[in-house]
């Protein structure tokens, strides 16, 4: 194994092979964050199940009983939960990746491993938490189905992993861009919570795109998180199918941002330790 360290490494040189060599570290890091999440709480690992159930109950209370928004026939609880489950996955990956450089200066200042390992570990642990949420969601889905809710199983449900992939790619891509930006422009850090909040309202979680006027809807589809949420709901209920006019912009925006994020992050991570 021969390694050359150059003063000026070209920005397009992404050493993905090295990331692959460190893949077991990705899983160790994600295992670490999952293992330590509920350490020393009395209920311990039960929280992994309690958390999504309690959240679902809260949604039901607020959005199912107090404020009723038209959902196109989908049970309220399922409607909100399906949106929130994906949104949690997104914020998990996005916010953690965005702070992965500036938040780990101590670690990176003492040891080298590919900086992409931490963001990827957030994806892995985010997916595990998403899986647990999904189990609760499916349990409710079955319950509603047994009680006679109009939930049809369509072939679209098989494509749901693609919606999840879109969410992860969006979170990762934008997260990498913000992480790279915070290296020189620390201000980005303070904008992050506001940005996430604004983004949440711009995403059809508490409403459906079918309620939005067609002109605005075009704008909504530019939000790469809107499509997967609606797509996911369609898979669960068989209602409101999502067409190509929604998919194309979302996939395109995410692909561009993810690629740009990878290169920008790669460039920023090289000397960020001297700047942060």
């Amino acid at each position: 194994m021969r390694k050359t360290i150059e003063a000026d490494e070209p920005w397009w040189k992404l050493d993905l092979q090295e990331v692959w060599a460190y893949r077991h570290l990705v899983f160790l890091f994600s295992g670490r964050s999952l293992a330590t999440m509920y350490k020393q709480s009395i209920l311990g690992r039960a929280w992994f199940v309690i958390q999504p159930v309690v959240t679902a109950g809260m949604f039901y209370l607020v959005f199912g009983l107090l404020m009723r928004v038209p959902t196109g026939g989908m049970p309220y609880l399922l409607f909100y939960m399906s949106g929130m489950v994906l949104w949690y996955l997104f914020t998990n990956v996005f916010t953690q990746t965005a702070t992965s450089l500036s938040g780990n200066v101590n670690l990176y200042g003492k040891i080298y491993f590919p900086r992409l390992v931490l963001p990827l570990s957030y994806v892995a642990s985010g997916l595990v938490l998403f899986g647990l949420n999904l189990v609760v969601l499916v349990a409710f889905w079955i319950l509603f189905r047994l009680r006679g809710a109009p939930l049809a199983v369509r072939p679209g449900i098989l494509l749901m992993p693609l919606a999840v992939a879109q969410v992860v790619a969006t979170g990762l891509g934008f997260g990498l861009c913000v992480a790279a930006a915070t290296v020189r422009f620390r201000d980005a850090k303070f904008l992050l919570p506001t940005l996430v909040q604004f983004w949440m309202f711009a995403t059809p979680i508490f409403y459906s795109t079918s309620q939005v006027s067609p002109a605005v809807r075009k704008l909504v589809w530019l939000n790469p998180m809107a499509m997967p949420v609606e797509f996911f709901r369609h898979g669960l209920s068989g209602m409101n199918p999502v067409g190509l006019e929604a998919m194309l912009p979302a996939v395109l925006v995410t692909a561009v941002v993810l690629v740009a994020g990878l290169f920008w992050f790669n460039r920023a991570q090289r000397d960020f330790i001297d700047i942060v």
């Binding site: 390694k3 050359t4 360290i5 150059e6 990176y108 200042g109 003492k110 080298y112 000397d271």
Partner: peptide, 19 residues
């Protein structure tokens, strides 16, 4: 150990580095 890059020059290392 690749924690920070050089401003000029280059380094070649043979083998795995432990820091």
């Amino acid at each position: 150990s690749r924690i920070t890059p050089p401003t000029r020059g280059r380094v070649e290392i043979n083998g795995r580095v432990g820091t």
